[in-house]
C-alpha cells in the first residue's frame, strides 16, 4: 500500500496582529493551518512571549519567581527596562494589579502615570492589563488607553461585564484589545461579536479563552483553544479568527506545585525546577493548542519555551 501523506488545507485563516511601533513592533498570528503545521500551509509569524511585570512590588508572587527580579521589581520602570535590556523581552505585559480595590486600590490617574513612565523607558511593545476587577478596570483601562495613545499597545481585558467602555477607549486611542471570556467557546464567540458590533475592527482583537495551570484545569483551556482554532480554520468563522493569548503566569504561580518546598513533599522533587517546568509545560501546551501570544513570568521558563519554539520552527 503506497503512503500518501494525509495533508489538510483549510478555508480559514487566523488574523495577524501587529503591536508596538517602529523597528521593535512584533506580529503574531497569520497562519492558515493548525499550530506549527508548516508542513501543510503558512505559519508566517513566530509566537510571541511577553514578560509580565506589575505596577506594585510582586509580594504575592512565590519567592522563586520574585528572585530573578528582586533588584528591579520595586519600580515598574526599572523592571520593564530589565526585561527589555537584560532578558531581551520581545514584549512586556504590565499588569496594573495595584489598582484592585482589595489591593493597593491605586487610582486610574496613578495607573496612567505608571503606563506613561514605562512607555517612555522602553521601546518594545507593551500590553496593558487591568486587575481583573470588572468595575475598576473599566475606569483604569480607559485612563491608561488614553495615556498610551497611538503607541499601538494591547489593552485588556474586556469582559462581558465591562467591554463597552474599554472597547471605546481602545478604539479612540488606536490600540489592540484582549477579549476574555470564561472557558467556553460560545461565550468567546459572543463577546467577539458584541465587540465588533460596536465598530471595533475584528482584525485588532486578541481572544483570551481564559488560561489555567497544568493540573488545574489545563485540559479545559487546551480544548477550548483547539475548538476555537478549528472553527476559525475549518468553518472559516471570522468571529473566531483573532489570534489567542495565554496569560499563564498568574495561574501557574499561585498553586501548590510552584510553592511547596521539597522538604514538605520529597516526591515532588526540587522546587525551583518544578516551578519553571510547570510554567513552561503549561505554556507549551497552549502553544500547540493555538495560542500565539504568551504572558509569562520566570526567565528560565521563557528561555525553555523559546528553545522549544526554535525547534518547532527550525
Amino acid at each position: 500500500m503506497a503512503f500518501t501523506p494525509p495533508k489538510e488545507s483549510y478555508a480559514g485563516k487566523v488574523y495577524s496582529v501587529t503591536v508596538g511601533t517602529g523597528d521593535t513592533a512584533v506580529t503574531f498570528g497569520g497562519e492558515n493551518v493548525l499550530p506549527f503545521h508548516g508542513f501543510e500551509g503558512e505559519t508566517p509569524n513566530r509566537p510571541v512571549i511577553a514578560y509580565e511585570i506589575q505596577d506594585v512590588p510582586p509580594s504575592d508572587w512565590p519567592e522563586s519567581v520574585q528572585k530573578p527580579f528582586e533588584s528591579v521589581s520595586s519600580d515598574p520602570v526599572e523592571w520593564a527596562k530589565f526585561c527589555q535590556d537584560t532578558l531581551k523581552a520581545k514584549a512586556i505585559a504590565l499588569r496594573l494589579i495595584g489598582t484592585h480595590p482589595d489591593r493597593e486600590n491605586r487610582s486610574a490617574e496613578d495607573a496612567a502615570k505608571t503606563v506613561r513612565d514605562v512607555l517612555s523607558a522602553i521601546n518594545v511593545p507593551l500590553i496593558i492589563l487591568g486587575s481583573n476587577h470588572a468595575e475598576k478596570d473599566s475606569s483604569v483601562l480607559v485612563a491608561v488607553a488614553e495615556a498610551a495613545k497611538d503607541k499601538n499597545c494591547i489593552i485588556g481585558k474586556a469582559q462581558e461585564a465591562n467591554y463597552k467602555t474599554i472597547v471605546a477607549a481602545a478604539m479612540a486611542n488606536n490600540h489592540k484589545l484582549i477579549a476574555m471570556s470564561e472557558l467556553d467557546i460560545n461565550l468567546s464567540k459572543q463577546l467577539n461579536i458584541l465587540i465588533t458590533q460596536m465598530g471595533f475592527d475584528k482584525e485588532k482583537l486578541v481572544t483570551d479563552p481564559m488560561s489555567s495551570a497544568l493540573g488545574y484545569g489545563l485540559e479545559y483551556t487546551y480544548s477550548v483553544m483547539e475548538r476555537i482554532r478549528l472553527a476559525a480554520l475549518t468553518q472559516n468563522d471570522a468571529t473566531m479568527q483573532p489570534p489567542m493569548v495565554a496569560d499563564i503566569g498568574m495561574y501557574v504561580w499561585k498553586i501548590k506545585e510552584t510553592q511547596a518546598p521539597e522538604s514538605d513533599l520529597p516526591q515532588w522533587g526540587s522546587l525551583p525546577e518544578r516551578g519553571i517546568a510547570w510554567e513552561a509545560v503549561s505554556a507549551m501546551s497552549f502553544l500547540i493548542a493555538g495560542a500565539e501570544l504568551l504572558i509569562m513570568r520566570h526567565p528560565q521558563a521563557v528561555e525553555a519555551v523559546e528553545k522549544f519554539i526554535g525547534e518547532m520552527e527550525g
Binding site: 497544568l214 480544548s223 506545585e257 515532588w268 522533587g269 509545560v281
Partner: peptide, 20 residues
C-alpha cells in the same frame, strides 16, 4: 527522570487523557 520532571509530565498526561 528527575522528580520535578516526572510530576509535570504525569500531570500533563492525566490532563490530556481525561474524559472530556
Amino acid at each position: 527522570i528527575e522528580k520535578w520532571k516526572n510530576l509535570a509530565l504525569f500531570t500533563l498526561r492525566q490532563n490530556i487523557y481525561t474524559d472530556p
